[in-house]
């Protein structure tokens, strides 16, 4: 097995899934964003988005904070330092492979 093929196997599977890749890519260029923003940008339904976010939170890539904007509940999401590092590594690996 040559190095390139081996590198494909080493890709971060948490980020590699298209839905989660969209979320991480969107969060990578902001400090934080809310659930509504991600829902609008990714065009995912609430359930799918929630499950992807839970998976990212489990992996320690995303921080989820529940708060209020006035009287309206708001879910704020941000990429953790680990998440940012993982996304950078993923992009580097993909650039090398393609």
């Amino acid at each position: 097995m040559n190095d390139q093929i081996q590198a494909i196997g080493e890709l971060d599977r948490v980020i590699h899934e298209p839905g989660r890749l969209m979320i991480v890519a969107l969060l990578s260029s902001v400090e934080k964003a809310d659930f509504l923003f991600l829902q609008n940008q990714t065009a995912m339904n609430k359930g799918t988005l929630s499950s992807h976010l839970s998976r990212l939170e489990e992996a320690g890539y995303v921080e989820i904070v529940k708060t209020y904007r006035g009287k309206v509940p708001q879910t704020l999401l941000s990429l953790t330092a680990t998440g940012r590092q993982a996304f950078d590594n993923y992009r580097k690996k993909m650039k090398q492979l393609i």
């Binding site: 400090e31 934080k32 964003a33 309206v72």
Partner: peptide
């Protein structure tokens, strides 16, 4: 904007 299409806080660097 935020109640319609969501809230974003940009990074201080940007």
């Amino acid at each position: 904007t935020f109640p319609r299409t969501g809230f974003v806080e940009y990074r201080k660097r940007d």
